[in-house]
Design a binder for these strands. Structure first.
Lengths: 234, 234
DNA sequence: CTAGTTGATGTGGTTGGACCACATGGCATA
DNA sequence: TATGCCATGTGGTCCAACCACATCAACTAG
């Protein structure tokens, strides 16, 4: 077993034993190295991995933001991993989209009509009405869909949903260039969002799932999923 | 931007540009450090991250297994990340199980009746008939469910399925201690497996999905999901 | 006495160099 | 020809030093 893996397993044990909790701090790198009788290099390699996994955040200096603190951002880790494997062409973008449809349609069909996340979702829709810039609109769109997914109350589903979205974010942004008319597309998306949210509010999970599926698949179809950006549609 | 992140982005670009392909080799650490004008330490930190992401594998010595080669094992990366966040109690085990049910029931409902993976699945069931040891049985069980998931033809779904399973593997193994009678449980599982496979062969996706849902939820209910291992059932 | 400056301290970030264990392949020797 | 040995190149580990940064306490000028 390599040295940094030893450090890794030590830290993981501290986590599962509850000796390290969310917001807590790891010992300083030098101290941890001395305590485990390994080099600081190995400690740092372990911390790099935990950072990539979204388990810790390292900050220089002194005080509040300094040191290595325990966080919980699984979506960043999953997103990076998925993105890398999309880059190697091992995970097709179409499969990611399909998985996202699956998770999100399940989420809206399960969402409680009085879930607090829906209030936030409605607020985001209001902001989208006033947003014309593509980048702003897409950012709000991401937040809206995430809020919708969180309303189902399954942390794993919403986390994976977010990471799937993150993995193809660059891809999706490039696809907007394929759209014949952004303004009309944006208006259509606004309407569809309202309809989805209304279905959830009505407690009609089946309708919400159908709408969300059509919403996502329709967008990628219009933007030309699978074809290089810039190419005209057949 | 930190130095190792620069190395990371350089490698990711090589991957997405196709200059680095599956099975290909990264330059040696020392050479890469000189080429990018950074220290070997920073190169190593980047490689550690890629290794944790399941994108590369590092091997010492010379020849075939030596050097840092590009691989594609997204499931290991996602599995580790999920396992770590389960350890911090940020992702409930129940949500993981629920997500697994969602993905797997979708997979079997979509599986083609003549998918080649089903042949392998049937072979695994035969081996399970001859397997009495708990560990062997569980290992075959994992392989069976994975083969089933792969029959749907969505790489992302089967990858996530596998990583979800991996993330709670230790947990699931501990749960077997809760079972009142392992042999009878194993026999029941064998029957349910056959029934699921038969439904898929019949092209009855709906029945297959129902059976798989009952199969997984039933097992975890019997084993006492959510209660500490060893505690008796109410 | 107050307000601003300055230095000590502790954090992660980075570097260069050294050495180790390992696996291969070619060279020298029996 | 067959065998053993060493040069070579790989990742793995460690060390010592320095940097940039943020805070806080002590000090100094007003």
């Amino acid at each position: 077993m390599r040295t940094h893996e030893l450090v890794l397993s030590w830290i993981e044990k501290q986590l599962s034993d509850g000796h390290l909790v969310l917001g807590g701090r790891l010992p300083a790198e030098r101290a941890l190295a001395e305590q485990l009788e390994v080099s600081r290099t190995s400690v740092r390699e372990a911390i790099r991995i935990l950072e990539a996994m979204g388990v810790v955040r390292a900050g220089v200096g002194s005080g509040k933001d300094a040191g290595t603190v325990v966080i919980a951002e699984p979506a960043t880790a999953l997103g990076s991993a998925l993105r890398l494997h999309v880059a190697t062409q091992h995970l097709p973008v179409a499969d990611i989209v399909q998985t996202r449809v699956l998770l999100e349609s399940w989420a809206v069909s399960r969402a409680k009509a009085d879930a607090p996340e829906l209030v936030e979702a409605a607020r985001l829709l209001d902001k989208m009405d006033a947003s014309s810039a593509v980048d702003d609109f897409l950012a709000l769109d991401v937040a809206f869909h995430l809020a919708l997914a969180e309303a189902a109350g399954n942390a794993v589903v919403s986390t994976i949903m977010g990471s799937l979205r993150e993995a193809i974010e660059g891809y999706a942004a490039a696809l907007t260039a394929n759209l014949p008319n952004w303004d009309s597309t944006a208006n259509r998306l606004r309407c569809e969002h309202r309809a989805i949210l209304e279905a959830v509010h009505d407690g009609d999970g089946g309708r919400a799932a159908t709408l969300v599926t059509a919403h996502i698949e329709g967008y990628y179809r219009e933007a030309g999923l699978g074809r290089p950006p810039g190419e005209t549609r057949p």
